[in-house]
Design a protein around this nucleic acid. Sequence first.
DNA 1: ACAATAGTTAACGAATGAGTGAACTATTGC
DNA 2: GCAATAGTTCACTCATTCGTTAACTATTGT
Lengths: 111, 111
Amino acid sequence: MVEAQVDRFFEVLADPTRRQVVQLLGEGPRRAGQLAVATGASSPAMSRHLRILLEAGLIADERVPDDARVRLFHLNPEPVVAVQAWLDQVQAHWRDNLGAFKRHVETREKR
Amino acid sequence: MVEAQVDRFFEVLADPTRRQVVQLLGEGPRRAGQLAVATGASSPAMSRHLRILLEAGLIADERVPDDARVRLFHLNPEPVVAVQAWLDQVQAHWRDNLGAFKRHVETREKR
DNA sequence: ACAATAGTTAACGAATGAGTGAACTATTGC
DNA sequence: GCAATAGTTCACTCATTCGTTAACTATTGT
């Protein structure tokens, strides 16, 4: 996984609407129209968000057999894992000293 | 942890220079000048990035006893954990079916 | 054939955000 | 006291990005 890709993932996830889309697609595949309604975005706006998410590789689309007008979008697992890996790496140092950090965080349940 | 904060974290992390800063501060505390050199940013540019990171709560600063001109910056653990929590939640559905996704990811050790 | 549905594309305007140069504050060393 | 160091703030410019309206393609239903 290239660093430039992680760069792009963060840029793409900076937009609240797109993060909402990612969140919704985490639950399962959705159509463009559904995503527009759920997020309160207009059709053109959603269309562009989806294109950006597609080009970044965060999501992918499938055609449904019954209605050729509809595209079903679903989440790609890899990018989410890549972003988590980056955060893990940032954490690495203070996570491994299970002194200062562990005391620091154990007030809240993690995971 | 409020959703609006996670919103802000992603916005702040969208900038490559600021992600570099976060990465460097993950290794340990650094001074503003060190961060400027390491990232190739100018002093004013770095100063602004640090202010943004401070206001978002991603980092904090300490004064060093010997030289009062110097501010040492260090990373706050909570925001990183919060972003990871968000990503975990997105993953939740396909992570819990330890079928498709587990096969998908088990090439890399996760935690 | 025609209307409705699903979605995309293009052109425009407004807002946001990042970097720069110049001026400024505060502290340290001589 | 004065120069150097460390860093911040301000005013400005440039580019990017987001949403909207309007027009368009493709498909389905009657």
